[in-house]
């Protein structure tokens, strides 16, 4: 009975992933090894280009910073939300989801209005005399990160509120009543228990930001090109699916490596974390 449940319950989802994702994508990526110049020639070409390496490193950097910022911002906000009374809590969760309902083009238009040369931030700073020339905030790594954090904080809040809710309140109260200060309670009780949620959030945000292409393209421009945009160019402009699949394979390998490092850290914090 247990054995049946153990292997039977994850079976449909496993079959779906294997049949609809792993096999088709593996067949696509297999084409990258069939080049006349040798099995790994397309990969060698990728890593031999300084520009492409720079794109890869920039993508990693942006994704990691986005993940770290989203983790901190999302965790604190979810913690506050989890303490709110029921109705207010639901309203806050709904409000947090709203940014996800906007399309990428209008969203980047909004950032243009806020961060642009004649934008709200520059106008405000100039009117209070902090600056005399408008700052160039758009089309920088910073603007890409801001726009991505904006998109991933809601995801983090949604994931973490559920987890923080699940932490039995009597546990934190017990810790406090035993005389533990708030910070040790946080570090020793709440943080380990929230680790599974933090790791899921971190994995979702990292993979999401690492593969994104529309946001970096609209708010970063060519100066901030990321892997997703590069892949898109190959696939949809030059119809070079071998090149696109090469980029995809590199992205998949790197993401799997980072995700397993994250899981390892998580298990150190809390052995129960998946």
């Amino acid at each position: 009975m247990t054995k049946l449940a153990k292997w039977g319950l994850p079976l449909p989802a496993t079959i779906a992933v294997v049949v609809l994702l792993i096999i088709p994508v593996a067949l696509t990526i297999a084409t990258t090894f069939g080049e006349a110049k040798g099995a790994f020639s397309t990969y060698a070409a990728f890593f031999n280009s300084g520009f492409r390496r720079a794109v890869l490193f920039r993508t990693l950097e942006v994704a990691l910073i986005t993940t770290a910022l989203s983790l901190v911002i999302g965790f604190v906000t979810a913690y506050v939300i989890a303490q709110m009374p029921g109705r207010l809590k639901s309203i806050m969760i709904i409000a947090a989801v709203f940014p996800l309902l906007t399309g990428v083009v209008v969203r980047s238009f909004a950032w243009l209005i806020i961060l642009g040369k004649n934008g709200i931030v520059n106008d405000t700073l100039m009117s209070i005399g902090l600056i005399t020339e408008p700052l160039s905030m758009l089309y920088t790594e910073g603007s890409v990160i801001v726009a991505m954090v904006y998109l991933f904080v809601p995801l983090m809040i949604l994931t973490l509120t559920g987890v923080l809710e699940g932490i039995p309140r009597d546990l934190t109260e017990a810790s406090a009543s035993l005389g533990a200060k708030p910070i040790p309670t946080f570090l020793q009780v709440i943080l380990p228990l929230a680790t599974p949620g933090l790791i899921v959030g971190a994995v979702l945000v990292f993979t999401g930001s690492f593969t994104s292409y529309a946001t970096p393209q609209l708010l970063g421009g060519e100066k901030q090109m990321m892997m997703g945009t590069f892949l898109y160019q190959r696939a949809m402009v030059t119809f070079d699916w071998v090149g696109a699949s090469t980029v995809a394979a590199i992205m998949v390998v790197i993401t799997i490596a980072i995700v397993s490092i994250m899981s390892r850290i998580a298990r150190r914090l809390n052995p129960m974390a998946v």
């Binding site: 994702l21 088709p24 994508v25 696509t28 979702l204 993979t207 999401g208 593969t211 997703g228 892949l231 898109y232 696939a235 949809m236 696109a244 699949s245 980029v247 995809a248 992205m251 998949v252 993401t255 799997i256 995700v259």
Partner: peptide, 8 residues
């Protein structure tokens, strides 16, 4: 979500 969407 790990495989780039257009490749998927």
């Amino acid at each position: 979500i790990l495989v780039p969407e257009i490749v998927f």
